[in-house]
Design a protein around this nucleic acid. Structure first.
Lengths: 160, 160
DNA sequence: AAAAAATGTATAAGTGCTTATATAATTTCA
DNA sequence: TGAAATTATATAAGCACTTATACATTTTTT
């Protein structure tokens, strides 16, 4: 049963997922403690709108590399809560022009200091050891290697 | 807007998740092409049962660091498909003793060569550059730093 | 030995994605 | 110009988790 030894990468996926979930849950605790009515899952859309006054749903889905459907659902949800509004574009009636409401802008101002603190904390965390400092770089390198040749092709070669 | 610059770790979670999903989807393509009726999501339970003849649901949830509920649902699903069986333990009636059926054992034999090939492919992938070689190590270091002091505490310090 | 706490399990409801499908608006091109 | 392809969106259904709840069994405490 030799091949079980280095099983690391076979459980890789769930390990990554777990890490990201505990991270998000921590971030939500921060908002709660600061008494800010914000949820970490809203971050991506708020972040994009903080940089672009007006975006389409397709733009959001492209930026976040999620399905259009997911982006559409995010926007619907934030719209129901009154943080953003979306109106059909004048120029191209297929597009929705998504923007902050006044309420959304106000919330953005409140959360920006938290993002800043979070950013600093993560930077420090990443610098605590040489290895974790390299995590983002390692991740990028790994992703790039995968682009060169997919897991699928790599395994097919072995099995044929 | 200086603090937006190095936003890397704020999108960290979704990036990890995406990588793990594309990995799992690739692995499923492999099973399909090899005409093996197996799904990547069954791997964790099959793997654990390949190492332990008999396990409890609680053991599965601990090993995989998922909720008991999730483990329970996995077992139910694999049981419905006829790959495993679970009977109430003689020694402690709270436990279920989960084991392979003959059908499950047979499938295990079929997938083991694929796991082996996958393992080799991932090892090679990890060795293609110094940086991606370090990915698992970097991940571990990062996790350990987080254990020392949570993101929550780190951010609270900054904000107070 | 009885009461309280801990442990193991199952199920319901919720979340945030996915794919599949449908519909409308625009662009391309024969 | 009209038909076909593309683009943007919304919604339904499914998936794999989660938390909350309930319940049975065992262990611990007094």
């Amino acid at each position: 049963m030799n091949f079980y030894q280095d099983i690391g990468y076979l459980f890789f996926g769930s390990r990554l997922k777990r890490l990201s979930e505990s991270f998000l849950s921590d971030v939500n605790s921060i908002y709660k403690k600061q008494k800010i009515g914000f949820d970490a899952s809203w971050f991506p859309v708020f972040y994009i709108l903080s940089k672009n006054k007006e975006v389409s749903i397709r733009h959001i889905s492209n930026e976040l590399v999620i399905s259009h459907s997911a982006a559409s659902q995010m926007v619907s949800s934030l719209q129901e809560k009154g943080f953003i509004k979306s109106i059909t574009s004048k120029k191209d009636a297929r597009h929705k022009a998504v923007t902050f409401t006044a309420k959304g802008e106000k919330l953005l101002k409140k959360i920006e200091p938290v993002w800043q603190a979070l950013q600093q904390a993560m930077d420090e965390l990443a610098n605590e050891s040489n290895q974790s400092k390299k995590l983002l770089e390692a991740l990028t390198a790994f992703e790039n290697n995968l682009k060169k040749e997919s897991v699928l092709k790599r395994v097919e070669k072995k099995l044929s």
